[in-house]
Design a protein around this nucleic acid. Structure first.
Lengths: 217, 217, 217, 217
DNA sequence: CATGAATGAGGGTTCATTCAT
DNA sequence: GATGAATGAACCCTCATTCAT
């Protein structure tokens, strides 16, 4: 019986894993070539199945795209939040964790290509873009705003327009991810070490946000 | 005689202007939909010509893409440099001019979509990407580095890793341009005023880069 | 069980037969209209498939052309040789078999259009032409030369420049095939009976090649 | 005044010569590539005029084709006839003149590609083919038949089916011309000397047609 | 479930033909 | 007459989608 279980298990696991194998393959190809330039042949081949099999799991190429975004993104946010609350009393540490955590949990993984993909395709898939904004960008910014607000409350950060500043602070993170999936691949750019980049960024922001000693200049 | 000139002028002017009319149309469509998803029919229609006419000026869709990047980008850099040297003795002013000038001369024009386009297509067109890096990105970063170095020399900015910091400082500018051509179009995001964004960014960077009063903390 | 076999058979047979159905359709159209004037739509339609199906079996129109020549031609030569060796001791009979066999096995079949096709397209497809010369024309001439040489050895044919004479003797055969696929189709030429033509030709050649009674004139 | 005449003459001659310059250019390209694969751009370029100019002289590509055949072919026949009547009393000499004259006056000139062209395109242009058969092939064969008939009348040639034999005798001539414009161009075939070829052919035919010594058997 | 052969609409590209100059 | 820019129909080829097995 144990034998049977073991024999069946991988098969069942396989079947259940199929959609994710497909979205994973699709994600990397969409990121690399863009949605329109990716052929479903390639996606299927990379996932090790035939082209027809794709249609057992997804109604169309667009549905596959939606699934790629849907399944790939959602769980990250929650993990990030957990990471941050661990340092809720230390806004500087929270900021640092945000930046490095964003990179470690997201930018540096295979999901790191999603910002490039979504930026490229937002206009072609407005509903997906809206979904992404609602589920990823806004929560991510809200999380950053919490960090900032907490810092202000603690007297560590100075008062700023947190809406604008969160936007600004996301930019270098996104840039790091976009760069890796665009120019870094095809141009012999002097290797940019993400850690050093993030350290510099963290240093810059910290000083840029630092509360003035006595509220004066 | 004036009559004759006027009769001939429009035709000749058209013929000479054709390539630019076409690249302009192509640029906006490439930015909007991406290279692969743009049909040459549309490009031609937007330029007011037939599909065949495109091939009088460009050998292929890819050649059109190359021309879009080539002709659209180059002259900007030089203009920016001129703008900056006007304030060579005031690094803070130079930085401010860089940020706002970048937006006014580039990001806010029809060329502002190029970063999105090049980011999306860099992997599909490595030679074009290399050209873009060489002619646009590196000169742009070099210009920024000049600003930083001058600030350090004047004792206004503190010492930093200028390679990394230029990269970081470009990110919010690029983000502004990318955002406008991606999520801003399709999502009812609360309008982000570029000027306020740039002011916040400038403020943040200025404090982040400020030389410490007595060199020590 | 027989049922199952019968259900599967036609499908499998079809799939394996597809390439040949396509080359057969292509051959007749290439012969009729020439390579450039033949549309792949027509080829597909004549083979009873859709246009896209063609590309499951051939990479391009040119690859289809190559396949038409490759698969259509080669096996004939060997059959001809077998036919001739049956009469190795009778050069006159060999010559007769060559002429009539050439027509029956080649000229009068659907492959009979190949000489017209290759003659028309040789300059446009030099590699294919070289292949055809090497695999068809030269072996065919070599076979003819064997006939002549054997006739000379047996004292039945007089000595001639066999290189030139083989070339000359091939001409009326080729002409018969070319004529059928060109002027014969569109012009109300008084029907030329191939058999009578070949008889006349055989008669003419036999007398033209006959050894002089006492070796002298 | 003489000056003026000389100045105008070449211009006028030019204008009148235009159509022929165009048909000459078209002929060589049609022969080389076939009708469908020849672009009017090339024809115009080879004739040294612009593409539009072609349409001043010919209504369409097909009209150009018709003109190529029309103007290129007709006058030859009459010249050949004159050549033959000079030896009306010597059928053997007539036959020799026919073969070598055909080659010198036709096959070896720039018109020598016409048989290849007409053979290739006969089915695509039935009216042109009919015209060609009527004006060229049938007169050519009739001329040959005259030679044969005269030989029979003189007791030099034996009786044969002259319809079939003329057809057969034309084949090696046509083959020589077809070969030169097809395989000879692209394949390193051991050079075939037309004169030797024709000598062999003449020799072969002469013996093949020779009247039997005592009219027996 | 899985396959892969088949489809056919659609896009890039060519080129005969037109026409304003 | 001559030009060459412009056109648009038509062709080769691709690829998302379907479906019989």
């Amino acid at each position: 019986m144990a034998d049977q279980v073991e024999k069946k298990a991988p098969v069942r696991r396989r079947k259940e894993a199929r959609p994710q194998e497909l979205t994973t393959a699709a994600l990397s190809l969409f990121v690399e070539k863009g949605f329109a330039a990716t052929r479903l042949d390639e996606v299927a081949a990379r996932a090790g199945v035939s082209k027809g099999t794709l249609y057992l799991y997804f109604d169309s190429k667009e549905a596959l795209f939606l699934a790629v975004i849907r399944e790939g993104i959602v769980p990250i946010i929650e993990e990030g939040r957990k990471l941050l609350v661990a340092h809720a009393d230390d806004p500087v540490r929270m900021l640092r964790e945000y930046l490095f955590g964003w990179w470690a949990l997201f930018g540096d993984t295979e999901l790191g290509g999603v910002p490039k993909l979504m930026t490229s395709e937002a206009q072609n898939f407005p509903e997906v873009a809206q979904y992404y904004v609602r589920e990823v960008i806004l929560p991510g910014k809200a999380l950053m705003r919490e960090v900032l607000d907490r810092g202000v409350a603690k007297g560590v950060f100075r008062q700023t327009d947190s809406e604008l500043v969160t936007h600004i602070l996301m930019a270098p993170l996104l840039h790091l991810a976009l760069w890796r999936h665009s120019f870094a691949v095809c141009c012999q750019v002097p290797d940019m070490d993400p850690n050093a980049y993030l350290e510099s960024f963290f240093d810059l922001v910290l000083k840029g946000l630092a509360a003035t000693p006595e509220g004066g200049k």
